[in-house]
Simulated scan of single mutants.
Amino acid sequence: MPEEVIERLREKEWHSRRTLKARLKGERPFPVSVSLRPPRGQEAVSDLERFHRFISAWKAFPDQGCVQWESRSFRQLSLQEVPVRFLVRNVGVLAELLGDEERTALAAWERRISFILAEPFAQGEDVQRELFSALVDNLDVLRKFSEDDFKLLVRLIPQLCPGLGGGHYLRALPVVHVDTKFMEQNFQLLERLIDVLYVGDVTASGGLLEWLNCRKSPKGWSFVRPLCSCSQSALGGLPILQMDTETLLGFELPASNVLVVENAQTGLALPSLDNTIAVFGGGKNVSWLSAPWLYSRNVGYWGDIDSEGFSILSDARRRCPGIESVMMDESTVEAFSLRMVDEPSSVDFVPGFLEEHEAELFHRLREGAFGKPRLEQERLPADYVLQCLTNWAS
């Protein structure tokens, strides 16, 4: 029936964005063809009311240019004109068939794409073709733009050029009239469009940030806390500060001992230790432990005694092979087993960079040898922590 065909087109051709974009770009050519599967022979004769309803519905369909009819002969019915196929010639017809919402969306896409392709920066046959493809791939982004934001996009594109960032962060980009938060919010679209305009130079540079010569925004923040007066003095007298991953990779912390602690609150409660700096609160973020300057340091890791803690320890040792686990052993578990709790989630595989005694403890925790599988850092008493850390640091 007509309404069934329309809903099928809506689902398969419009709501499927991959299909719609392929149609617009010519990768899947029109017309769209839908078989109407008309009744045959005895099927038509056995239910004449349904057969006539089928014929009448298609005769009443307003766009007869989409309906393909054939003459077919039926016993007891003689020769009949039967609708056999529904053809959609182009995307404009598709939108008209589907309704006002789709017609409005298509008109908005066409208007905005045409506007961009008419700009001076978009001239040239190859550029037009590639820009059209890139814009079609971002149909939903284009439609969500307000009129003001769309104008910002058009004004921003010709301002971007290689090296514009001058080694600063993206938010410091020297562009006129356009705020850099807009650029940040629409980064992927801009990266694709600029790559087209500069014939792949953005991709060859490693991405838009590199092409613009902008620094990446800091990420992977951890607390850094000197645990002795000498280390604090070497850090400008600051009792605590934060560093991102990139800074930790390149900045040599001024202490012989570097203690990595999983949780922030535990790091804040650490006792004083000679020649020691603690880095804590990063959780799973241990990528900075691949820093070459750590090879000359005594590096320790203290995390929760559970599957997640051992997983982080394994990742840390993969990056820093000399790292030593602290208070993540069976003697600690046995001493405080009454303080153990359930673990909300667990790692299903045995981490690959555990030492033998750590892997054995991991297995025993999983097997329920201690009743419950998790001993949190915060449950260890201060005197025990001080004793263990003093032994490690010395």
Rank of each mutant, 00 (worst) to 15 (best):
Q76G: 00
R53G: 14
F30D: 06
N298A: 09
T19Q: 10
L248Y: 02
T390P: 03
S114G: 15
R192K: 15
P226I: 08
Q159H: 06
D148W: 08
E11I: 11
S78K: 01
Q265L: 14
I312S: 06
L189G: 10
S33W: 04
R318L: 12
V91A: 14
G352V: 08
Q265G: 13
S331P: 02
G26F: 02
R112C: 08
E330L: 11
M1I: 06
V286G: 06
R23F: 07
H363F: 10
Q76W: 07
G371V: 04
A172W: 05
T104I: 12
E334C: 12
Y295I: 13
G282S: 15
C66P: 06
R215A: 14
V32S: 01
V333R: 00
K219S: 13
R53L: 12
S217A: 15
E378W: 02
E358S: 06
S287E: 15
G65S: 14
L94I: 03
R17S: 09
M183P: 03
F132S: 04
L365S: 04
L253F: 03
D329G: 07
E324M: 12
S146Y: 08
F150P: 05
A95N: 05
D244F: 04
P38L: 06
F353R: 13
L209M: 14
D148L: 11
D306H: 12
E70L: 10
V199K: 14
K144H: 13
H15W: 12
R89M: 08
C66Q: 07
G303C: 05
M1P: 11
E356M: 13
A105K: 11
V175G: 08
V333W: 03
L135W: 07
D100V: 12
R40F: 02
P254Q: 01
T245F: 01
L365I: 04
V286N: 05
S217C: 02
L135P: 06
Y198T: 12
W69P: 02
R143W: 10
L117D: 09
A382N: 09
P381K: 11
A105W: 04
V261C: 04
R10N: 07
G220H: 09
S231A: 15
V350E: 13
E147H: 10
G206Q: 07
R155C: 06
D274Y: 07
Q232H: 07
N391W: 09
E27W: 14
R297M: 09
S231T: 05
T266E: 01
V196W: 03
E70C: 04
T276V: 06
A264P: 00
A264Q: 13
A172Q: 14
L270R: 02
A234Q: 10
H15G: 06
S73V: 12
G300Q: 08
